[in-house]
Each structure stands twice: as C-alpha cells, then as structure tokens.
Amino acid sequence: MTLGLINANPVVHAKKERIARVEDSHADDAVDPLEIYDSVRDIRDPEHPYSLEQLSVLSEESITVDEKLGRILITFTPTIQHCSMATVIGLCLRAKLMRCFPPHYKVDIYVSPGSHANEESVNKQLNDKERVAAALENPNLRQLVDECLYSNEL
C-alpha cells in the first residue's frame, strides 16, 4: 500500500436532490439507469469520506441498461489519471450490482475513455470473471470493499 493519499485534495460536488418516483400501481417498473445509479451513487470512495456521486466519478448518464438483453454498462471516471484506486472502485461497483440485481444481468464496467493512464489493463481486470472472484476472496480487499459499500461516514 502506498503511504499518503493518491489524490489528496479531490474536487467535491454537491449531491443532487433525490426525487421520489411516482409509482404506477399497475404497470411493471423496468430497470432503468436511474435505479442503477441510485443503488451505486452512495458507495464511498476508498480514500475519502465522500460518495462517488460527490466526487463526480459516476453520473446517471454514464450508465446504460438494456433490459431485454439483460445488460448493464457502467462507465466511470477516476478522479485522477493514475489513480490506483480505480480498480477498487470498479470492484465495489461490481460487488454492489451483484447484490442488487439478479444474476442474469451481464454487467460491464469500464473507465471512461482517456480518463486513466492504464485504461486497457484496468478494463480488462474489471471484466475478468476469475480475477474479480479471486479479488473478492482476498480478505483485505473484501474488507475494503465492504467498508466502501456499507460505510456510515457519509
């Protein structure tokens, strides 16, 4: 682990106000980007007590979903180019989605093009089933991910 913070002074954005949805009592509610965004926006950043939403790592527009094919695509933007936390953030996203959505969805997670120095390797690592499974077996990583997902610090 590196000593000191990788991005010591991140830019913090305001949280967007949440609008309660008007429930239609008869129609089915399809899974939409907002629902996915709602489930991941509060994930805490691995090194700061801010949510991914506040650090502008994620936005509703960066999420697409195709319910028929059962695919979810998330593109996120690390706060700085050489952020070594990018993989942890990706892992958190994946872990959270695994818990919130049924297993028949195929989830793709990418860093947004040009936002990271090792873009290709990060993308490869995040979408490799075996490596994700292995990472989640690692007790240290597992603890870090859980802290990010269920933190009360926000």
Binding site: R21, E23, D28, D29, E35, S39, R99, C100, F101, P102, P103, H104, Y150
Partner: peptide, 20 residues
C-alpha cells in the same frame, strides 16, 4: 435473490435491503 428480479421497483429495493 429471486425477489431481486421482481417486476416492481419497491419490492426489488426492499429485497436488496433485506438481503444485506
């Protein structure tokens, strides 16, 4: 995990909370 696939959003959210 079956309830996660419910047709209604409110049920899905409740299922996530309960799952946790």
């Amino acid at each position: 995990s079956k309830a996660l696939d419910d047709k209604k959003r409110a049920v899905r959210l409740e299922a996530v909370r309960c799952h946790q």
